[in-house]
Design a protein around this nucleic acid. Structure first.
Length: 604
RNA sequence: GACUCGGUAGCUCAGAUGGUAGAGCAGUGGCCUUUUAAGCCAUUGGCCGUGGGUUCGAGUCCCACCCGAGUCACCA
């Protein structure tokens, strides 16, 4: 239960990018580039996306008969065109590039971005005039880049069809090398005028830019320099690009002029994905992790359900909500901050194992580990207690980690071992371990405050007992929770939905939070199922709320009524999926595991 | 919310003490039929984040604001 599965600051982790590869100092960059060509300046190391990105070949099937290769190639020798409009501006009077009036494409220029775009629009118009469809409907792909790159030399097929985005072009007069990028990686193609025909080479390829999509058909061979390459017989333009991509070059895994401006990368993630292959890898891994979570829960008999994201009353966590309004109902609604109370209604309704994997929304600050909308997994099991949920959670996390590779990982410079049994320690035990024996048996806000002062920490005045204690825990203990650790048996004051501890201390509940690498990953309880007790706990929260605690939980009568019909003993767990992904993919900012993180509106 | 750093060409970045905005890549024109940061020659391109101010003169100094990153605070 995500009473607060989006945890807080992680004090004590300020290490900067220890594993971020060195980028060549700017000053050297421009200056040295030419002079040292072939040298070994430091560039940023490329990730090795391909190992994680393997995707089975999409094996061809011919297209349906009616599909007769629309736009697949302009005719064997590029012959399917009509004469240019006589008045086509660009073609007039220039010479050079084409059999038809293919000459210099843009006569004179203004050249801002606008004009690069103008040039490309010009090429687009000329291609249409020449009879090429710049936006055809489909292309049958026989191999992806990874399929070809893995071939043995004696097994090179002589008829393959590959497609991708043009990411590099090396023109050498009447022959050219081009790299096409697809999901797996890059495939070099070799275009020779004598192979594809003068028209296709000059008219069509002459108007191809970085960023365009091409489809080609040809034979596989290995070049003199050893790269597996497609020698093209037929060239098809699949999409014309009108804007220049960030251009960066790569050699031996080093990247020059990397596209790394965070703002630009987050705002235009598609460019980030095109140009920074490791980004795609992280999101592929995110998908694998989520798939593993689902498969694992399904495999254990959990039923996936969907509950309202728009709720008349928010609850199940301590957080401020987003508020919205339904016109027809004439009703204020809140975006959910947790699924908890609805999932419990389903347990009451007779589902014994349910889960929901969904977005929650919390109207709070943003930082490296908080995004206003984030992905939460919650699962509930009837007749189970928090010990069982702890064991299951441990397996679930370990399994998710193996889905992306390693059980030993480095996060923020710390070695973390997920293969060893996760640590288990009690909340108060940890407080005393890291703060001293004086931290035993505190029961009032004043005691917490003065204990904190003794340790040299001044806590804000306006906080209540639970808030103070939690803050102190954050300061004293959380920075030490690097190896996987279940923190158990929290104070009742900060756990209004958890069942009192069975061992008799009325101030404790049966709850655990899992910390790994300083991140709070999971939060779980033996769920409180005594409706009378639940009512008084929520009433206590309501009092906190009226005393100014903006995040105290709401008193949900409908939920209490449901519980009065009888709810079985239940274990429930909430897992912050984004943080789990951060950990398993080594990302230090939640923005790097969310494709489109929240941003302020930028310049138009 | 506070503080620090940053915002200059499509991309990556230079632009001491204020004095006509630069480089590489990309683009454009030319040469080049196995290249791969291809190469060679030529060449274009700027609301210097926005708005005020100081000054004969501001990318540079001052003020305010916008956007981002980071740290802290808030939050749990």
């Amino acid at each position: 239960m995500p009473e607060r599965a989006q945890p807080d600051q992680e004090p004590g982790h300020r290490h900067e990018d220890s594993q971020v590869p060195a980028v060549r100092p700017p000053a050297q960059r421009a200056a040295g580039r030419k002079a040292e060509a072939g040298g070994h300046q430091k560039g940023r190391r490329l990730g090795q996306p391909d190992q994680v990105l393997r995707i089975p070949a999409l094996h061809h099937g011919q297209g349906p008969p009616h599909q007769r290769g629309v736009g697949q190639h302009p005719g064997r020798d590029g012959r399917r065109y009509q004469p240019l409009h006589p008045g086509l501006p660009a073609a007039a009077g220039q010479s050079g590039c084409g059999a038809v009036q293919g000459g210099p494409l843009v006569p004179q220029a203004q050249r801002t971005l606008l004009e690069i775009r103008q040039q490309r629009l010009q090429k687009l118009a000329e291609l249409r005039e020449l009879g090429y469809d710049p936006y055809p409907y489909r292309f049958e792909v026989s191999h992806r880049s990874a399929d070809l790159q893995n071939l043995d030399d004696d097994a090179f097929p002589d008829d393959v069809r590959v497609a991708g985005r043009v990411v590099s072009v090396r023109r050498m007069g009447k022959a050219s090398f081009v790299h096409l990028q697809d999901v797996d990686g890059r495939q070099q193609i070799y275009l020779k005028r004598d192979n594809i025909g003068e028209a296709a080479y000059e008219e069509l390829f002459g108007r191809v830019d970085l960023g365009d999509f091409l489809g080609v058909r040809g034979a596989v061979f290995r070049t003199r320099t050893g790269e597996i390459t497609v020698e093209v017989r037929e060239l098809t333009l699949l999409s014309k690009s009108l804007r220049p991509l960030p251009n960066l070059k790569e050699k031996d895994g080093e990247i020059f002029d990397p596209f790394e401006d965070k703002e630009n990368r987050y705002r235009r993630r598609y460019l980030d994905l095109i140009v920074n292959p490791e980004v795609r890898v992280h999101f592929m891994n995110r998908a694998k992790i989520i798939r593993h979570l689902r498969e694992s829960l399904d495999g254990h008999g959990f039923v996936e359900v969907e509950t309202p994201a728009l709720q008349p009353l928010y609850g199940g966590a301590s957080a401020r909500p987003f508020t919205t309004y339904h016109n027809t109902l004439d009703q204020t609604l809140y975006l959910r901050i947790a699924d908890e109370l609805y999932l419990k209604r389903l347990i009451i309704g007779g589902f014994e194992k349910v889960y929901e994997l969904a977005k929650d929304f919390r109207n709070e600050g943003m930082d490296r580990s908080h995004n206003p909308e984030f992905t939460m997994l919650e699962f509930y099991q009837a007749y189970a207690d928090y010990h069982q949920m702890m064991d299951f959670t441990e397996k679930l996390i370990r399994g998710a980690a193996s889905a992306t590779g390693e059980l030993q990982l480095t996060y923020r410079g710390q070695e973390i071992d997920l293969s060893a049994p996760f640590g288990r320690a009690t909340y108060w035990g940890l407080l005393q371990k890291h703060g001293g024996p004086a931290l035993a048996g505190l029961t009032t806000a004043e005691e917490v405050r003065s204990a904190a002062e003794q340790l040299g920490h001044n806590l804000p005045d306006e906080l209540n007992f639970g808030q103070l204690l939690d803050k102190l825990f954050g300061i004293l203990v959380e920075p030490h929770l690097i190896q996987p650790t279940f923190v158990m048996d929290h104070p009742k004051a900060i756990s209004p939905l958890a069942k009192a501890h069975r061992d008799g201390d009325p101030a404790l509940v049966e709850r655990f939070e899992l910390f790994i690498g300083g991140l709070e990953i999971a939060n779980a309880f033996s769920e409180l199922n005594d409706p009378i007790e639940q009512r008084s706990r929520l009433e206590a929260q309501a009092e906190l709320a009226s005393a100014g605690d903006e995040e105290a939980q709401t008193l949900d009568e409908d939920f209490l009524e449901a519980m009065e019909f009888g709810m079985p003993p239940t274990g429930g767990v909430g897992i912050g999926v984004d943080r789990l992904v951060m950990l398993l993919t080594g990302q230090e900012s939640i923005k790097d595991v969310i494709l489109f993180p929240a941003m302020r509106p930028g310049p138009s």
